[in-house]
Nucleic acid binder design. Structure first.
Length: 194
DNA sequence: TGAGGGATGGCCT
DNA sequence: GGCCATCCCTCAC
């Protein structure tokens, strides 16, 4: 098992974001292991990035984890109803993160399906299967992540990312999603997907 | 297949 | 009091 090291996360956010594609995210929930493959991410580059929660040096209870050590999970509530999972990057006091926007189930899809729809995967309709975990709120629901896991160390045994040694060749990029308020930063091509 | 809109509540000023 | 790194349903085509 090639669990990603602290060094991996303590680097430039754009580099980490791209290299997270194809990696496997593991969550041990009550001794039931769920594994997914990361397929879509976005980079949020700290105090100079108008789309970032820490833009302008904002440091609040919500963003506190981003100001800390790289390799921890930053989870927040969005639109009052959903959770988003981020990975903290760069150094302490340089509050950057990578948002995990999409994943594909690798192991224990049954548990994920019950988390998501309270149904077996085989019972889902084609729309539900197609949109199973292709969004930040959806993947948190599928993995059963909420604020309980905020700040969790990704070098722990409960929540971590490992390198499956898959060769990712064709990385696509685009503007980040739903950050129209971010002026010129809304045009940066900091969304990466495979 | 895509656009349009409602739900919903914590966070921050 | 306004904003928001979303999701899902509806409806039209």
């Amino acid at each position: 098992m090639n669990k990603l090291s602290r060094d991996f996360y303590e680097r430039d956010t754009l580099v980490v974001a791209k290299e997270l594609l194809g990696k496997y995210l593991v969550y041990n929930d009550n001794d039931e292991e769920v594994v997914v493959k990361i397929t879509e991410v976005e980079a949020y580059k700290g105090i100079d990035d108008k789309a970032c929660h820490t833009y302008g040096g904002r440091r609040t209870p919500r963003t506190e984890v981003m100001w800390g050590e790289a390799g921890h999970a930053y989870i927040y509530i969005i639109y009052g109803m959903y959770y988003c999972l981020n990975v903290v990057t760069e150094n302490i006091d340089n509050p950057c993160a990578v948002l995990i926007r999409g994943v594909k189930p690798v192991k224990n899809i049954t548990k994920m399906s019950y988390n998501r729809y309270n149904k077996a995967y085989e019972e889902l309709n084609s729309y539900q299967k197609k949109n199973f975990s292709n969004g930040p709120g959806k993947l948190c629901k599928a993995l059963s992540l909420d604020l309980t896991q905020n700040g969790m160390d990704l070098l722990s045994d409960n929540l971590y990312i490992y390198d499956n040694k898959e060769n990712i060749v064709d990385i696509k990029k685009s503007k980040r999603i739903n950050i129209d308020y971010a002026e010129e930063a809304a045009d940066y091509l900091w969304r990466f997907y495979i």
